[in-house]
């Protein structure tokens, strides 16, 4: 694993405009562990602000196609666009087919567009563990706009709200029962509802249902509704404007700042939890853990006391650099 100097060098290269350095940094983030920690540290001094847009919705709703059309739209407005596209890993084999790029064909080879496919690698919540780090890498490298496509959302996969500045929830005409079941969650996270595949039947009914659901569940936030046909590029202008409005409103109201604050808390919690878990597992596998488990088996101590003792072993070191 690269030491801090090598990492700083790679970061400098990426910030200097090397795409391959940028790409390798994202790989470092994906591999996680101490490399990723070193990367975070190396990114800290970097300036650079980017605005991030999350795109979430059921499998096949047209997220990638929409991301592609939106990229085209933003490109014509002169913006450089980076996209992180997350697809699920198989829980059984850990393998994945990352197919989002096929929808992004129009942007293949365009130097103004950076696309990176990421496998969720067992992370629940719709993003990969490394997505936020990857976003920070892009930010450091001066990509002003970062689109993040989640895996198709199920029940609890709503992490994208914490990770991005504007969240697009993509629905289709005739949004099915799965969506109904998930309505409350989506109402909570959506900044803009995109009814994509507006060329399909049932558009009117869906819009009505959606308006009613917003009135019932999110009367104060009132997320905008935009209709698009991503495959034809229809409605993208309106979507770009809706995003710009949302950005402007949240910036003016201070909401934007509050979200970033909340994001920091979330990331802090996630990372701390992940480290805690790792340390816990290590301890459990070590001598102390074995001894405690034996004691419980032999009924020399109760489980709860053993658990507290185990935790205590994690926090006995005084050097914070050595903490889990």
């Amino acid at each position: 694993m690269a030491g801090p100097d090598a990492m700083a060098e790679l970061v400098a290269e990426a910030v200097g405009g090397s795409r391959s350095a940028l790409a390798r940094l994202i790989s470092v983030a994906e591999r996680g562990g101490e490399g990723s920690a070193a990367l975070e540290a190396a990114l800290l001094p970097c300036r650079g602000e980017s605005y991030s847009i999350g795109i979430t919705g059921a499998p096949g709703a047209g997220k990638s196609t929409l991301a592609s059309a939106l990229t085209t739209e933003l490109q014509t407005a002169g913006e450089r666009v980076a996209l992180l596209a997350v697809d699920p890993s198989s829980p059984l084999t850990r393998g994945a087919i990352l197919g989002d790029r096929v929808r992004l064909q129009p942007h293949l080879g365009n130097p103004e567009v950076f696309i990176r496919s990421m496998a969720s690698r067992g992370h629940l919540g719709g993003l990969a563990m490394a997505t936020c780090t990857a976003r920070r890498v892009l930010e450091a490298c001066g990509w002003p706009l970062v689109l993040i496509e989640t895996v198709g959302v199920g029940q609890a996969e709503l992490d994208v709200a914490g990770a991005t500045d504007t969240v697009l929830v993509v629905l289709n005409p005739g949004w099915g029962d799965e969506m109904q079941a998930n309505k409350a969650g989506l109402m909570e996270i959506a900044d803009i509802f995109v009814i994509n595949k507006a060329d399909r039947q049932g558009l009117e009914a869906t819009r009505r249902d959606l308006e009613a659901a917003i009135a019932a569940n999110a009367p104060t936030r009132r997320p905008a509704i935009v209709e698009t046909v991503a495959t034809e590029g229809t409605g993208l202008n309106a979507l770009r404007e809706a995003i710009a409005d949302h950005r402007q409103q949240t910036t003016a109201s201070g909401e934007h700042q509050r979200r970033r604050q909340a994001r920091a808390v979330t990331e802090l919690r996630d990372l701390a939890r992940a480290r805690l878990e790792l340390a816990l597992e290590a301890q459990l596998a070590g001598a102390a853990g074995k001894a405690l488990a034996d004691a419980v088996t032999r009924r020399e101590t109760d489980v709860d006391s053993a658990a507290r003792r185990l935790l205590a072993t994690l926090f006995t070191r005084s050097d914070p650099e050595q903490a889990p």
């Binding site: 197919g99 495959t231 034809e232």
Partner: peptide
Amino acid sequence: FGDWATPIQT
């Protein structure tokens, strides 16, 4: 007429 929305990913 535009372009067909291909359902497959290759």
